[in-house]
Design a protein around this nucleic acid. Structure first.
Lengths: 340, 340
DNA sequence: CTGAAAGCGCTTACAG
DNA sequence: CTGAAAGCGCTTACAG
């Protein structure tokens, strides 16, 4: 059975109406009589006709696709966000076209050009560093961009993050209240705003408590590098009594090293806290104290901004930082009076 | 700055050539003189022109998009597969359009119709149950389909899986060699071929060793349900000495219940084995003995089949089951003579 | 409400 | 190698 593509012309012929009439039946809000619509639907069903979205895009200038640029899915915050983003957009009649990009910026540039070639109606960049010029170029091309889980100083760019500064501060207050004095920090990739904001909030919180970082290592948001960072930090005699690891993904690696390699108890010997509250953080093997970064709320804001800007090209950019609660679990000593 | 869309006509005018010439410069293999190409490229650069992929698709009948249907990314095998699939396709000039689908089959049907509307060049369905008629309908529409990590009895459908029967058998041999006698199984979703094949291979392996399942519960590939299944199975007096949990994702939940809630040691009191070898399986907190299901190899085969069928519409369907090694770790007692 | 016509931005025989 | 013309499958003023 060789398949022959069914077009609106075929349907029009069979239904005995014009091609325009067929089109109107599939255009919400267009004026067609119920009688005509019925004839068209019947013919369409008999022929197995479905409108060609690509041909429609050419006319309407709307592809109903959103480009998503993402660099790695190993941090389980991203699969969760991707799933929710895709679902939310699907509910609005949009679909996600994926572009994997390495962190290097010329790679991102090439990838973005490709995205624009597909005439996407909007772009979400997650866990990717993008120059302001590049983002501005997309906006100029009429394609709204939302930075997801990254912010940039450029006021023209929309960005959705959690309130990383506030989150870092909460963790500092929590550890200080727990009586810890020697406190370490294992940083994420220094190019990321999430890394910088979490650290600055954490440092500010420590400072307010009369404390300062006693040790700092860099884990680049990478599981393997975080293990190495933990070894460097905790093999020293003056090892910290507590450590904030810049995201949960790295915190799991750090806990594994502390317990498995160095024979340290968590939280008996070392309190560990993370950031994100990805699913494994609540698994008993880790039971990690962390700050919740709500994929749900971040996705909802992202979709909101995107749809606004698609509907109204001069809608102003928005910068959202969503506050998330501290989730107290057993990986860190719980101060008196804090509910576990 | 209001953006005006730059078309091939604009470039043609500025370069002083025909629209056809512009098109040929961007069509690999078309015949253009170097002189013309240079003029066109110069004009294009000055205007910021890039070909509209959608308009091209309308003519060529190729969108260079592959639709991916996936139902959940909580099992970390899927984000890994998605990342690799997207990278592999990108390298071939294709991009992935994502469709999230619930397991219910009429939902899958609606989603597939949408996919076809986007004129994708091929479809990959992962972790999704699809009726044979539905898949056949896509093939008939000229769109090749590859079932990823699911197989179906229908010979007309291409499918890529690991060799789940062989994997199940290896785990049975391993546990039997370890001297275990009372052996349990926690099943995945019964509608999945992976579940059925892993179980039948496991049962066959036990039988060959003169053993049979002593307990069986269903976890539906769900973290929460797996925890409940573990509670039911291990609160009994005649609890198994070893258990095969149908995938790693559930095995983590089972280990958490055994150690955290029931105070059982792994592998001291119970040996646990899983299937997939997702990243957390090698994290020390679990260190799970499992069978490797290679996302790399499965993706490579999937892309291979897809490109073949796109290039040659009458290419026969292929059914691939990739054998993966048993990965011995500390979550299960290691028999004499088996390398850990 | 309806149809004929123009056109979205490209590619591709065809003729030169 | 190059250009004029037709056409991919739709939508959308326009006129009736």
């Amino acid at each position: 059975m060789t398949h022959v593509k069914v077009t609106s012309v075929d349907v029009a012929k069979r239904a005995g109406v014009s091609q325009s009439a067929v089109s109107r039946v599939y255009t919400p809000g267009a004026s067609v009589s119920e009688k005509t619509a019925a004839k068209v639907r019947k013919a369409a069903a008999e022929l197995g006709y479905r409108p060609n979205v690509l041909a429609r895009s050419l006319i309407t200038g709307r592809s109903r696709m959103i480009g998503l640029v993402v660099s790695y899915l190993e941090n389980y915050f991203y699969p969760e966000a991707l799933e929710k983003l895709s679902n939310a957009l699907q509910a609005e009649g949009y679909h996600v076209l994926i572009f994997m990009a390495q962190q290097t910026s010329d790679n991102v540039e090439a990838v973005l050009e490709e995205i624009l070639d597909y005439q996407v109606d909007g772009i979400v960049t997650a866990s990717v560093a993008m120059s302001s010029e590049l983002a501005a170029r997309c906006q100029a091309a009429g394609t709204p961009v939302v930075l997801f889980n990254r912010s940039q100083d450029d006021e023209r760019l929309s960005a959705v993050t959690s309130d990383n500064v506030a989150g870092g501060r909460k963790l500092a207050e929590f550890l200080a209240a727990g009586g810890h004095r020697r406190i370490g920090y294992i940083a994420g990739w220094e190019g990321a705003s999430t890394q910088r904001d979490r650290e600055s909030g954490f440092r500010a919180g420590l400072k307010d408590a009369g404390l300062a970082l006693s040790a700092r290592e860099v884990g680049d948001f990478d599981h393997g590098k975080a293990r190495e960072a933990a070894r460097r930090m905790f093999r020293r005699d003056d090892r910290p009594e507590a450590v904030f690891v810049a995201n949960d993904h790295m915190a799991f690696a750090v806990m594994d090293v502390l317990r498995g390699e160095l024979g340290l108890r968590v939280p008996g010997d070392v309190s560990v806290v993370g950031y994100d509250d990805v699913p494994p953080a609540s698994w008993p093997a880790y039971d990690l104290t962390t700050v919740r970064q709500s994929a749900n709320r971040m996705v909802a804001e992202t979709v909101d901004i995107l749809l606004d800007q698609i509907a109204d090209r001069i809608a102003p950019p928005r910068r959202i930082a969503i506050d998330g609660p501290l989730i107290v679990r057993s990986s860190a000593r719980v101060p008196e009076g804090w509910a576990a």
